[in-house]
Design a binder for these strands. Structure first.
Ligand SMILES: [Mn+2]
Ligand SMILES: [Mn+2]
Ligand SMILES: [Zn+2]
Ligand SMILES: [Zn+2]
Lengths: 157, 157
DNA sequence: GCTTTATTGAAAATCATTTTCGCTATTCAT
DNA sequence: ATGAATAGCGAAAATGATTTTCAATAAAGC
């Protein structure tokens, strides 16, 4: 559960989140700051769903409604602070956004839901070349590998 | 709208779908055959949602309920006849399954929803090596590139 | 400070998908 | 073929994550 030391500390200081929000006509609120803080303080490589965000904030004494959580997530995705992921069925996950060049990808255990991250420069290149080859302007690309993790393999065998 | 000439003609003859179903304890029904037929007769590279399946069947005079469509889709995914895709928000798409080695990937226009397919052997290799390196048993991997297609670019500029 | 209006929380709405249940149709043994 | 056992069907209700509504609140900017 260490704070992420690698990423630029956007929102680490309240100043910055407010600046980014106001630049686009959004308002700074304590709820949005708390949600961003949660991402900044959660373990590197951890992905949060709306439900987990609400539970964790509640654990630290902050009661925030789902409407507010979902609205905050959408705003932060639009501002490129967060990235939305479709790792598992039924719900979306969010993580701090990493600059396009350092994009990472995911290996998901379909049995227990464990997620591992990996970098692969090749991916971004392929995504880039495929999209330009067809005249698309690239927004982002996701590479997700589904399998069964070692511990689930031993449980199932 | 040509029938797909490349894939093995599973279900092209009623015999085969029945065989595959019965082998796993499922029953052959006319609804399941009609749904599979729809995939076989739709254009290569076309992806169908449950709603589109119902509409297209209705257009050809076959009324099938959503419960039946969803159940048939799940069965056929379990039997490896179909593959489930998460191309766009909010709904799932299905397509005839291609053998693992010939897996293809998708380029999606986030504005109009247009989908293009591309092959990229590299992907499967990376998925394979990443999963074995971490002790995962690989099930499948998806590479999806999001962008804006040429015609939407000109509309928006 | 004061005005404007974006944001909030609670509750209701949405909407793709799943489940329930009584009836029908397929399978398989006779 | 015939019949028993039961998987699958359709209609309608339920589910569950996400979105919207709306009255009250609180940022932003002058
Ligand atoms: Mn990640
Ligand atoms: Mn495809
Ligand atoms: Zn696992
Ligand atoms: Zn487009």
């Amino acid at each position: 559960m260490e704070p992420n030391p690698v990423l630029p500390s956007l929102g680490q200081e309240p100043e910055l989140l407010k600046t980014v929000l106001n630049k686009e006509g959004f308002r700074f609120t304590s709820q949005r700051q708390k949600i961003l803080d949660l991402f900044q303080s959660s373990a590197l490589g951890h992905h949060l769903s709306a439900e987990e965000i609400q539970r964790q904030l509640l654990d630290q004494g902050e009661k925030i409604s789902f409407s507010t959580i979902y609205r905050a997530l959408h705003v932060m995705v639009r501002l490129d602070l967060l990235q939305e992921l479709e790792l598992a069925e039924g719900r979306k996950y969010y993580e701090l956004n990493t600059p396009c060049m350092d994009q990472h990808h995911h290996l998901v255990c379909v049995h227990c839901g464990a997620v591992q991250e990996f970098d692969e420069a090749t991916m971004t290149q392929v995504g880039q070349s495929e999209s330009t080859a067809r005249g698309f302007s690239l927004l982002n690309c996701t590479f997700t590998v589904y399998g069964i993790c070692p511990s689930c393999q031993s449980l199932l065998s």
